[in-house]
Design a binder for these strands. Sequence first.
RNA 1: GCCCUCGUAGCCCAAUGGCAGAGGCAGAGGACUUAAAAUCCUCCAAGUGUGGGUUCGACCCCCACCGAGGGCACCA
Length: 830
Amino acid sequence: MSADHARDLVHEGYDVAYVQEKWLPVWDEIAPFKSGRPDDPRPKKYVLDMFPYPSGDLHMGHAEAYALGDVIARYWVQRGFNVMHPMGWDAFGLPAENAAIKRNIDPTIWTYENIAVQKASMRRYACSFDWDRTFNTCDPEFYRWNQWLFLQLFERGLAYRKASKVNWCPSCQTVLANEQVIAGLCERCDTPVTKKKLTQWYFKITDYADRLLEDMSQLEGKWPDKVLTMQRNWIGRSTGANVLFQIEGRSEPVTIYTTRPDTLYGATFFVVAADSDLAAELAKGTPAEAKFNEYVEATKAASDIDRMATDRPKTGVFLERYAINPVNGEKLPIWVSDYVLADYGTGAIMAVPAHDQRDLEFARAMDLPVRVVVDTGEEDPNITGIATSGDGALINSGSLNGKSKGDAIAFINAQLEKDGLGKAARNYRLRDWLISRQRYWGTPIPIIHCPSCGEVATPLEELPVTLPPAAGLDLKPKGTSPLGAATDWVNVPCPKCGQPAKRDTDTMDTFVDSSWYFLRFPSSTDHAQAFSREATDTWLPVDQYVGGVTHAILHLLYSRFFTKVLFDMGKLSFTEPFTRLLNQGMVVMEGSAMSKSRGNLVRLSDELEKHGVDAIRLSMVFSGPPEDDVDWADVSPSGSVKFLNRAWRLSGDVSSAPRVDFTKGERSLRIATHKALHDASFAVESFRFNVAIARVMELVNATRKAIDSGCGPADPAVREATEAIAIMLSLVAPFTAEEMWERLGHKPSVALAGWPSIDESLLVAEAVVAVIQINGKIKERIEVSPLISDADLEAVALANPVVAQALLGATVIKIITRAPKIVNIVINNA
RNA sequence: GCCCUCGUAGCCCAAUGGCAGAGGCAGAGGACUUAAAAUCCUCCAAGUGUGGGUUCGACCCCCACCGAGGGCACCA
């Protein structure tokens, strides 16, 4: 470093690159964030960031998320907690596999290389992770327990195989999860997704629908409302009744589900989902069969995109058969249509066109009768074309006449149950979770298919069923799992009868991995079990979870489901895995997502190079509330650099010795320091990190002023303030804070300095300004003691000359006093 | 169409129902400097999307509307 350069640094601030390199090895040595010491007496806290896919180096989104999680973890360390803040990799899955195919290398090598890159970047980004607990979901040692879990569910009937229509991308030649279908298109190649009937593995999450819904009361106020609402929508519970309808010429009745059993007398026709088995059966042998087949073909050709158009005209075919309305014996014509879904309810409905908009549209298209049975006071749907759904007295409804909607539902449900014609029922939008994937890079499903024994669990002692080497397998998607070609791997004797059998060749959805990974961190070195009861009871549930809202439904719902299953198995003592949840926003550029095609991609490595780690972390955290998007066009990393230098310079100005008696310091700066500490603590605990930083900025300004034109650099209060600044800054700008701490004469690490205790007596000001209002308008400000009583404050206010003047000739109606802040005098001016 | 969240200086954002401004960005002026950069100081601006209501008092609570973002969407 030249002499000129060194002199410049004295003015400009510290050498960011040098300081970053200086502290990393020191921190490696001190390891301030280890949580595994058995004799650690500190109370425990589990702070968890959602783990990443290793699909490349870290990007701006990671930088934001991990900066936020770090503030929380580092804060609780400073507050004296034994914080476990672990990190690992969600390393299986399509992104990794596709990248590996594109580059023609083994996904194993590609994945572990990326993990190494990301891990090194996290270290340089000064993430406070406890690296002793790390693991990757593609480690056989991890997915072994994935397979164990699968078998636990299989034993309990919660994992099962069924044939069903699944999302299929004809271009990628693979099934897609629901979340990979965006507006009817494949998320990767934008090809319209079709349906294909395949036999696949499912987890029976629907068994837990009610508990997933009801246990949300534990999360109220601790998770974002938005996420809870989204989960409620997704589960989609509705209440109504199942009702049996006899079908002419069929011995068995058909069950329908309705949310409006009160409108049974208003049913004028019956509709069966076109793609259901029931429709095919009912159509068979009727004169309408040919037309029916034609219709089903046409429906199949229509893609999901067409189906999703809400204003699409209703279509259907009359089967020339009839259902019998159980309440009045009326013959209802049976139609098939694609507006009834085969996989919701029973795939068949009673149509009440007067009180259901979709039924009304169908009735009008097919010229079917409309009968009003609830007098809601609205106009006749026959005329308006708008179905009525409000409450009112029932009409045209036999014994229900005159009753309200609610009474009628209760009455008819009881009636149906008594007559064996139906009963109250619930339905859910939530479907069982399809976990099979016809891809290579995932956890092999530990089932062996035997011609005579059927589906046989792989014996536990044979786990893990490891993936066969990728070399020699064609990983390109072709509709069946690449594992099928690994003949040596596939062909095994049946564990039950010893006859030749075959392994299941599908792999599991990677959401299985992430549904319980948080249970593994406390037991990550335990090779005898997925997680130990002792470690889990010590650390879980997760006190604070941090991640993007993109996982609002799937990952979080699945994790809640697994937790409940494991609770039922007696493996866990809690039913909700994440006590508190913070959703961070995204990092965007000029209002829209950053993308290569738009050319507005901001590279994290460039930003770090330009401004340094601390300034980027600070910019992320200071930009606004954490759940808001960070618009990189709106933030000023160079402003952050300026502020950090400003704070750093204070540490060079302090001229008192370490461990000086702070109580002898200048009082007004001490008040500012303790108020900043108090306010920053409160702000951090309520996730208002931007506000916490604003408080630190204020304190930096106050300290600067004290040094330059106040008590001077030797006053103990200046040291107290600067040390408090270093400690508060350590949450977000660890390099700057450590450098300050050293210049203040302390040994590293500032991360373990401990949050200064707050002197409450300094938080109570000696005098405060009270406001005197007349009719809500401010008339005067007076200085009073913060301890003044209501009566005294009122007396002082009335004695004030300005106030007395204003009150001349007016009648005082009322005086509201809130000591020591405000007096409001309500007058009636003539 | 239904549900959720949000509208405060030019911009990002603060304000337990009690003085609308904490902090930052941008801008203006000044000090220092031969000059510039850096630094330090000072200043600037909105009456809270619109219209009602509750209240002694509303950015805050309630209703309606406008606008932005997000979620769900033929779920019987």
